[in-house]
Design a protein around this nucleic acid. Structure first.
Lengths: 137, 137
DNA sequence: TGACATTGTATCAAAGACTGATACATTGAG
DNA sequence: CTCAATGTATCAGTCTTTGATACAATGTCA
């Protein structure tokens, strides 16, 4: 469900938060779903339970999860598309996308290969049936 | 030329390295170009010169830049597309792209808006004239 | 009801990374 | 030769991250 990289410069709890947010955004996690106990997930990942607890707490503070002693952690909200976007945030996101695609080019991916990656991700995120007849300018 | 964010969890020198690599991959920097002196860039960004020097050194170690006391830092190599890609690296890149696009959806971007972002980035990376007649599956 | 396993939370310490201040070494210009 | 410009090295301070451990709350089962 979650994978982490010990080599990455991004902290472990941030990696977990990012992936959970991604699952919440893509439908991999929906309201009512229970998350694995901190000890279990920490054990699976081979890290300390505090690190997982911290990730859960950050999302709890964000209003996406709810935790209670003895009862576990559940999803109470998911982020739905259509929310208001600030321009600064939009620029940051486009920058992030551009950075990822630059990495692809940097690693030797050609445009066709990159396009295939994007296609897969679009299908995964917005549904298999979503079609984009053309993306030419 | 370079912008940094003090709020980001990613270290300053990593931010600089990422953006420089991106410039090297996109043609914003080519062989022979001189980089700003560490003191100047550090001053512009409002950070310590060591942080910039570290970023330069990392790229120097990677063989992309060359630095010399008193003479400055110049680009000696750029990364060209077509290099061999390992599968693990490819998966990581696709994961990165997917993460960026998930962020977009998370922030409320619809598929059309995301597609527009991608379109701009493709044009920027692989040239204005590059066309992608369709990206449907 | 009471004991106990399960789960999240809090506290504290250690280790490491990042950033910065400062001094040093090299190059080139005048 | 002098000196400004530039990259490099060293050291210290501060913060973050991670982990070990103990605590608190909830639910289950005898």
């Amino acid at each position: 469900m979650i994978t982490i990289s010990m080599n990455s410069p991004v902290p472990l709890h941030d990696q977990i938060v990012d992936q959970l947010r991604r699952l919440l955004a893509t439908g991999g996690l929906t309201v009512g779903d229970e998350l694995p106990p901190v000890r279990q997930l920490a054990g699976d990942l081979g890290i300390n339970l505090n690190t997982v607890a911290r990730a859960y707490r950050e999302l709890t503070d964000a209003g996406l999860l709810a935790s209670a002693r003895g009862r576990g952690t559940v999803v109470i909200a998911t982020v739905e598309a259509g929310a208001e976007i600030r321009q600064a945030q939009r620029d940051q996101i486009e920058n992030h996308i551009g950075s990822a695609m630059a990495d692809a080019k940097l690693a030797g991916c050609g445009p066709e290969e990159t396009r295939a990656m994007i296609q897969r991700q679009i299908a995964r995120l917005w549904g298999e049936d979503q079609r984009f007849p053309e993306i030419a300018r």
